[in-house]
């Protein structure tokens, strides 16, 4: 087990290194000149060249990357070209809000998805089942931008139940968490439904019934926990999916997390921030996947380590 973990962590480091090389190269290939972005329109040629030299952007790309990497190993993500602050401080200031939103999003998708899935499985082929599965299908396919604006318009603007975007107490988090979780809820409801149907046909359920246990007890104590296993194993992957989701959701709801930071940085070609958030996101994604694998390992004895 320790050896497995060590190997996986080594993989994480290699993946992050690969991500940093590829992102750096892609950003280097952009036609937009970052020095021009910093220098602004009125800068003279001399000003532009002086800034280029000071930032080391006149060096060949491999030397630039080497400088970046050595900085990175010392925990230095560089300074934003546009905001002129430490990238690490910008990310650290925004990470808690993103984590809050992601946790709330996971809760939202689990509560919605699991209850829909269980209900559907127990009322298989009823009209409610069919309706729920159509809703799940729409939830999976609807673009988050549209869902977010729609929720905002109906529940915040028209009904006034929630504040129109922003960050603060529990009321602020509900709509963005729903928007973020709705796609996953669609997934989970379908997965939970088929998993439940599968479990309900197993022998141990028939045995439990035969023992004379109540229907509620059979479902709550025997069916659901077993059906849950394959579903729980997926949560780790959600972190990766959410990493892209927060870019849209945070922008729509004015949520001050790293997704919003990313979107602004892309629009303004603020390369150090783009690099920083890409690395952080990659880190979360690989850690999420690792977590998913480990959880699956513990929950399903059929998976054996080689």
């Amino acid at each position: 087990m320790a050896a497995y973990l060590l190997r996986r962590l080594l993989e994480v480091v290699l993946i992050l290194f690969g991500v940093s090389v590829i992102t750096y190269l892609l950003l280097y290939l952009l036609p937009a000149d970052p020095v021009r972005q910093i220098a602004g329109r009125s800068a003279s040629q001399e000003t532009v060249e002086s800034i280029r030299r000071q930032l080391g952007l006149d060096l060949p790309v491999y030397q630039q990357y080497w400088r970046y990497l050595t900085g990175l190993l010392h925990g230095d993500l560089g300074r934003s070209y546009i905001q002129r602050s430490e990238v690490s401080a910008l990310i650290a200031g925004r990470l808690p809000a993103s984590l809050q939103l992601m946790v709330a999003g996971i809760l939202a998708e689990l509560v919605l998805g699991l209850s829909m899935g269980i209900y559907s499985a127990l009322h298989r082929n009823s009209s409610t089942d069919n309706a729920l599965m159509v809703i799940a299908f729409i939830a999976v396919s609807a673009p988050q931008f549209v869902v977010g604006i729609l929720l905002l318009y109906v529940f915040a603007v028209k009904l006034g139940w929630f504040p129109i975007g922003g960050y603060g107490d529990l009321r602020h988090v509900i709509l963005p968490a729903l928007t973020l979780g709705i796609m996953g809820a669609g997934w989970y409801s379908r997965m939970m439904r088929s998993s439940m149907l599968n479990v309900l046909e197993q022998d141990f359920i028939r045995t439990a019934r035969a023992k004379g246990l109540s229907r509620f007890r059979v479902i709550a104590r025997h069916a659901v926990p077993n059906a849950l296993l394959p579903v729980i194993a997926m949560i780790g992957f959600d972190i990766g999916i959410f990493m892209s989701g927060i870019v849209v959701v945070e922008s729509v709801f004015g949520w001050p997390g790293i997704g919003q930071l990313t979107w602004q940085a892309i629009q303004r070609v603020d390369i150090p921030i783009i690099m920083g958030v890409t690395l952080i996101a990659a880190f979360f994604i690989v850690m999420g996947n690792l977590l998913a694998d480990i959880v699956a390992l513990f929950m399903d004895p059929r998976i054996k380590l080689k």
């Binding site: 604006i149 905002l152 318009y153 915040a156 603007v157 129109i164 975007g165 922003g166 945070e250 922008s251 729509v252 709801f253 004015g254 949520w255 001050p256 919003q260």
Partner: peptide, 18 residues
């Protein structure tokens, strides 16, 4: 100065006097 607000959301909030 509140930042991170989409212009369309800002307009809705302005209509509500926020």
């Amino acid at each position: 100065f509140e930042v991170g607000q989409e212009p369309i959301v800002a307009l809705l909030r302005l209509e509500r006097g926020e």
